[in-house]
Design a binder for these strands. Sequence first.
RNA 1: GGGCGCGUGGUGGAAUGGUAGACACACAGGACUUAAAAUCCUGAGGUCGCAAGACCGUGAGGGUUCGAGUCCCUCCGCGCCCACCA
Length: 852
Amino acid sequence: MTRYNIRETEEKWRRVWAEKRCFEVTEQGNKEKFYVLAMLPYPSGRLHMGHVRNYTLSDVVARYRRAQGYNVLNPMGWDALGLPAENAAMDNKMHPATWTYSNIEAMRAQLKSMGLAIDWSREVTTCDPSYYKHEQKMFIEFYKKGIAYRKDSLVNWDPVENTVLANEQVVDGRGWRSGVPVERRKLNQWFLKITDYADELLSALKSLDRWPEKVRLMQENWIGKSSGLQFRFDVTGSRDQIEVFTTRPDTLFGASFVALAADHPLAKKYGAGKPGYDAFIKQCQAAGTSEAAIEQAEKLGFDTGATVQHPFIPDHMLPVYIANFVLMEYGTGALFGCPAHDQRDFEFATKYNLPILPVVIPEGADPKTFQLKGEPYTGPGKLAHSGFLDGLETETAKRAAIRKIEDMDKGFGTTIWRLRDWGVSRQRYWGCPVPMVHCDACGIVPVPDDQLPVTLPEDVTFDKPGNPLDRHPTWKHTSCPSCGAQATRETDTFDTFFESSWYFLRYCDAHNDKEAFSAKASKYWMAVDQYIGGVEHAVLHLLYSRFFTRALRDCGYTVPDEPFAGLFTQGMVTHMSYKDVDGKWIAPADIQSGHNGGMFRISDNAPVTPQRVEKMSKSKKNVVDPEDILSTYGADAARLFILSDTPPDRDLEWTEAGIEGAWRYVNRLHRLVTEANAVKPSAVSSYSAATTALRRQAHQTAAGVAADIEAFHMNKAVARIRELSNAIGAFTAKDDGDRAALREAMEFMVIGMNPMMPHLAEELWSLLGHQTLLADTAWPKADPALLLADTVTIGVQVNGKVRATITLPASAGQKETEEIALADPHIVKSLEGKTVRKVIVVPGRIVNVVAG
RNA sequence: GGGCGCGUGGUGGAAUGGUAGACACACAGGACUUAAAAUCCUGAGGUCGCAAGACCGUGAGGGUUCGAGUCCCUCCGCGCCCACCA
């Protein structure tokens, strides 16, 4: 028995593909393009299984589309700027650049061992000045266009990372990386006006019909559009006004209080000095934002004693509270409460004994007698006790109330957004320098084109906290590009999401030194036809990129509105975690199973117990190193296992048994082809029934695998290949016709498995005697006649229960099917003593005999 | 609290409203072997039965239908996202 030498064979074909530059592409106007993109990796040092899954999926798509005749762009690069490099520099006394570039070397080698059909000539590294100089230019263009601006603002300050975080990077009040509670600080920062694009970013989501519904919903919620009324209350006995926003202007007549955020300017004015004020404010600021904290937090208020005038009811005054549930960041930082129709206001009013007046009456209820049943009514209805709004439906009443307020010149109908502008300033070294100069005389001056890029200084130290750029002895000192006077460089660097917001455009024209990318290249390759990555980027990266592309468009770049026409989000890779008797986590690689099924530590045979299947993480030690897998089992087995069982959008549990099973199958396929007696026969005119069945299956497999891959049902595609290989294994060739069919079936199988197991497929293709590369071979065209079965086996039911199966010609019609079904002995027996009332016949599908 | 999704054998999972459990993993039995590994063959949703077969079966309950894992309603459980959002 010949053994398949995985290592040598896989390396051989990778070498051939590289030497022949199989996957390097150029723009070819006469050929339809297909842009496959996997989210670019951060060069942390080693590939993890999530990467392997991601790039396996993108490679399946790339190789498949290539076989379908597309000009496929499948690029790779490195998201190389960011905090881990700087932290590593501090830990290891190593320059971030050294750390980053050596990581890229290591990871590139690992990636290459996966046998990916990537155009490596377009490799992009974002920390290279030849990359970031273009984004510095973009930023200056944004600035001139008013898309980039500077403002003082309260920012989320991460005290561990010593930098600002965007709202999107704060999770449950904690830094997304450091996990420590963020502080509020006022800083002068660079922002991008993503809010100007809120409406477009929201409405265009509808056009993204090849995006997961889930991701579109998440973005919709994140953008958070609310329409309503913004208006001013007059404070009694003062010229102050309190501006509030509401989505329920229809309930204004049910208002019983006004509430201010603790950090609202008027809160201090009306509350300061009153007993209990200081303590109350302190309590508000201490409140957590975690799930548990929100769940338990009581609605608390502080009565300022001030009152406001109701806009519609003369001499009706509402008390002004400071309340812990009002957010300064949302709306106007103040609201009016209508307890009868809002859960939160209801709780507040109950606690402080404020009036609860229902003004929206549900359909069918009598306005005179309607009473709340211990909870607010939030549904639609007709207005009551509401003056000029009485009798109107909720939606009509909203419009009427807005019109009235607008007539009174006290406010206006408006839309507010949850989305905030994107703060892009970071006070760290290993990022792209913001290309701006601060001049005492001229203010903020962009660095002129001919002085770009502004590069990072190399001689920096990380021994002290804070921004190394700021304390560098000379770097920030420069002259003003405008007046020539002494000036200071901006020492902030960009948020690293800046780089990943346009890298897909750079791939289109990676070596262009003059511009970020040419209009021609962008026009040909964009948009990305299939983007693949983790769902964790559903709002951050994917929203920023959609915005960034539009901002570039508005600065005159040739780009489509939407950068990613198709998106697929893959699930996580999980693994069982294990603990020893002392409760310490034990890595799977250090565990062996005992004879009785128990698990033991290899080093000392101490028993270990499985915990749970969870995301691979260093802390739980349940990680499997792809490099070990790739060198032990080969790339094809690893790819096959990842694709074979679990649908790509679900979490994949990595198991030893699974990868070994995949490895055995790779070997079996090799044996199947090398041991088969398949020679290229002379002309064949007719086939036996068994042989036709094999041919039929081969053609159906070619068509079915294609359909499955296009639908991202990779597990089903693999199952089809296995079915065909099982059929080939069971087939005995008796004559030349059989051998011809067998060979055809094997070729179809090899082409079909190529996207999943490219090395083995290429080897088998060569073993079948081909001089040309499988990588350059077209997907087989299935014979339509063979796709249709000549016979079908269908179930015959009696009263909905299957009592028999019958096999009949596929062409059998209604009448013939019914006759065969009713003649079946099982059916005859089942119908004994019964009267047939009705026979449902769906030819080729089912027969159901209704009898009683 | 709001939104979305998912519940199918021991396990991963298949199934345009039409034979539930494809294809695998794990398991059991057998062949080969001195033995093991590898490989090959066979079996298998559950209950009863030597078998033929019968009955039950897709989280629970109801409904629509000739026919429901699939559609509708109620409930339970799990997962993800958002969240004192006015």
